[in-house]
C-alpha cells in the first residue's frame, strides 16, 4: 500500500494523460481538442518534475562535514535538471497551443464554425457540388 501511495504523482500523471488523450479524440470542438492536448502535455510535465525528487539527495554545493555532505532530512531535495528540461517543454507546449489557437481562429473565419464535424461536412458539400457541375 505504501508503495502505491509513494507513487501517487505517477498515478496522477497516468490519469491526466488519459483525460487529455480522451478529450483530444472524443471531442469534435477544436478548442476542446486543444484543451485536451494541453492537459495531456501538462501530465508529462508533472511526470518529469516528479522524477526530480530524490530521497536523501543533496545539492552539490551542500556544506561538508568530515568529507560527507550534511543532509537535513527535513529538506526535500529536487534534482534541477528535469525542471530545466520541463521549462523547455512548457515553452514548446505554449507555442503549440498558440499555433493551434491561431489555426482555430482562421478555421472559424473560413468555415464559420469551430466544430471539426461541421467543417468536414461543409467540405464534402463543396465536393458534391463540384462533382455535379463537372
Amino acid at each position: 500500500m505504501s508503495d502505491v501511495l509513494g507513487f501517487y504523482p505517477y498515478i496522477a500523471v497516468a490519469i491526466l494523460l488519459m483525460i487529455g488523450l480522451y478529450t483530444v479524440m472524443a471531442h469534435s470542438n477544436l478548442v476542446k481538442k486543444l484543451i485536451g492536448l494541453s492537459v495531456f502535455q501538462s501530465a508529462v510535465f508533472l511526470m518529469f518534475i516528479s522524477l526530480g525528487r530524490r530521497d536523501g539527495g543533496t545539492a552539490p554545493i551542500a556544506p561538508m562535514e568530515h568529507g560527507h555532505a550534511v543532509v537535513d532530512p527535513a529538506i526535500i531535495y529536487s534534482h534541477p535538471l528535469p525542471h530545466v528540461l520541463i521549462l523547455t517543454a512548457i515553452v514548446v507546449g505554449v507555442a503549440t497551443t498558440a499555433v493551434g489557437l491561431a489555426l482555430v481562429v482562421r478555421i472559424n473565419e473560413s468555415y464559420r464554425s469551430i466544430e471539426e464535424r461541421d467543417a468536414l461536412a461543409s467540405d464534402r458539400k463543396v465536393d458534391e457540388q463540384l462533382d455535379q457541375a463537372g
Partner: peptide
C-alpha cells in the same frame, strides 16, 4: 489546408509528447 494543418498539429503533438514520455 487549415483543417489539414490542425489535424497534423493534434497528431504531431501527441506523437512528440509520446516521444518526450519515452525519453523521460
Amino acid at each position: 489546408a487549415l483543417l489539414a494543418s490542425f489535424q497534423y498539429l493534434v497528431m504531431g503533438t501527441v506523437g512528440g509528447t509520446f516521444l518526450l514520455i519515452g525519453i523521460g
